[in-house]
Nucleic acid binder design. Sequence first.
DNA 1: CTTTCAAGATTACATTTGTAATCCATACAG
DNA 2: CTGTATGGATTACAAATGTAATCTTGAAAG
Lengths: 125, 125
Amino acid sequence: MKKIPKISESEWQIMKLLWAKNPSTANEMVEKLSPTTAWKPKTIKTLLNRLVKKKAVGYEKKGREYHYYPLAEKSECVKAESHSFLRRVYNGATKPMLAAFLENEDLSPEDIKELKRILNKKGRG
Amino acid sequence: MKKIPKISESEWQIMKLLWAKNPSTANEMVEKLSPTTAWKPKTIKTLLNRLVKKKAVGYEKKGREYHYYPLAEKSECVKAESHSFLRRVYNGATKPMLAAFLENEDLSPEDIKELKRILNKKGRG
DNA sequence: CTTTCAAGATTACATTTGTAATCCATACAG
DNA sequence: CTGTATGGATTACAAATGTAATCTTGAAAG
């Protein structure tokens, strides 16, 4: 298993964009983030630089701009962050965490059906 | 709803101890943490101080020691941290998050049964 | 009472993070 | 060709965090 770099709260925003559209230019990301954040373009460049330094992101020069792409795998990062959360908040106990979410969060009947389906498959496995 | 202070990774360790045994002395916590962390006692005192400053923890003087107790409510902190995680990693989408955990984490047959029970109750609700 | 030792208060310091502004080089406008 | 604007590189700076050492004070020991 490769080692995944630690990705901060703000950096996660960037990574999610890159996983969704690979590759992206800095300006594309500025566009996509402008409705949801108040970040100045320079801020986004800084975050990209840090991610490059952490080897979470790579780039290729295309004309005057860079085309950035994720180096860290989404599934790995999600797993790491999930486990970190689970450990921090629930001492690593999966079931209580799931129970809390199932009880407290809104779920549509379709969601519930889908989750039951997963549980059934799991039970049989 | 009251505003809950931001609790860092390390501080969570402290808060969990205080929620589990309320109140606790600093030395009790040092004891409890010594198997799991490499923190020096002074480090733990620092974390307690910061939590006091953040109003997440209070204390009462008892003889020469303080008896520390949580001011922030566990359920509130757990909820805040959960939502933060959900937003950061899953853009706030509960179902995909649950599906990922259900599929990837180990669950005993009893766990599965219990979770199904919760889902059934939810479905009926 | 006085000394001392340990709790807590204060201070320390590097790293990470959030948030950007300024500097520099070069691809395009003319 | 030359000037300029823009993308990226470098620098900036405060707050938060991890991790702890030193200072201060008062309770306990004698």
